[in-house]
Structure formats: structure tokens, C-alpha cells
Write a protein that binds this DNA or RNA. Sequence first.
DNA 1: GCGACAG
DNA 2: ATCTTGTCGC
Length: 224
Amino acid sequence: MLIPHLHDWPTTEAEALAIQHELVGRVNVSVPLGTIRTLAGCDIAYDTASPKLVAAVVVLDWPSRTVIEKTVVRAEATFPYVPGLLSFRELPALLEAFAQLGHAPDAFMLDAQGVAHPRNFGLACHLGLWLDRPCVGCAKSWLVGDYAAPGPTAGDTSPLTLHGRTLGSVVRSATNAKPVFVSPGHKIDAAGATALVLQSLSGYRHPVPTRLAHMLANEERAKL
DNA sequence: GCGACAG
DNA sequence: ATCTTGTCGC
């Protein structure tokens, strides 16, 4: 898929923060969930004791869940891991993987935060702006926001708020498993992001799209 | 000052 | 994220 250039990559934290502040205003989390015919799951696996990493993308026909395309890209981390600046570390490699895609998925799902971020600009938001397509963040741990524990059964949800505003939701993706934190990244609203994650559950803690991408990334890393 | 901190 | 075996539970 074609990916227009959005901005150059920063070298320092100060530059990264400036980019976030410059782009937050363009994020749109007011779009209702539309018809999704293809959904992409994305993830990255890191090598131990080396800056090498693998970005993986799995495109699924939706809602049949049939895998229709996969892409993996080997790259090297250029930006360090800094809480709140994760996108500057993972996006470059992910964008390379998307560029190799023959399909242009209707929506994307990531193991990261969307607007549930200190500056409301998580990886899912950043990716959404680059691709100009719906992106959903489904993180495995909390970063910001207040919430009450969701019920113990798969599918149970609880709102994730901040300063009285609903950012997303906390979803019990699998019975008796720790919940995941869902928030829209771009071109989708909180309800839509949550609905898409609920449609993606399969008995495991991770939604099908990111679960498959995670497995693919690990397989490729083993070949490093 | 103290605690928290996606992957 | 990553390093790691067995083990408790459905």
C-alpha cells in the first residue's frame, strides 16, 4: 500500500515531543465503526543483545478471520524505548512492513495505546495519521486513565476515563486473564475500537490480529 | 518531594 | 520487549 510521507524521524526526545504536540490536533476519534472487510494485526519482536528487530503484519479477511497476506521486515531500532514515545521506536519498521503490503487494510490493530496516552498520542494514533486509516490500540498494560476492574468473564468491559472523559475501555479478553486496555488511535471512536476488539476475541488474551502478528514476528526473529 | 511509566 | 521450567487449573 502507498504511504505518503508525514514527517522526518527525530533523534532526540525533545524533537519527538514537538512532533507529538504538532500532530495531536489531527487525531480523530469521533468516527463510528464502519464496515470492516480486511483487518491487519501488527507487532514487533526484539532481538536479545542487539538492536535488531522484526516487524510483522498479518492481514485478515473480516469477519471470516482468514489470513490473506503476511509481511515481515527486519530492521534496527534507532530510537530508545521511552515511556510515552514508543511510536518513534516502532513505527519506522512497521511502516516498511505496510509499504510491502499488496492490500490496503480497512483497519489496523496494535499491541499499544491509542489516545490513552499522557499526551493523547499513543502509537495507534501516530500510525493512524501516517496511514490515514482506522487504527485501534489494544495494550497489555495500563499507561494512563482511571477504571474499575471489568467483570471476570471474557467480553466484560469497563470504561477507561481521564479527567471525566472516556478514552477507551478495559476489556476482559479471556476469562480469568488480566484485562487489555483498548483505546482508539484514529478514524474510529471509543465504542468502535472496543467493538472491534470484542469481535476479535478467540479464547486467548490477545485479539486474533495481534496474536497472529506476534507469532509471526517471533518466528522470523528465530531466523536472525 | 514521591510514585508511575505502552513495548 | 526479553531472559525461562515446571506447574496449577479448567
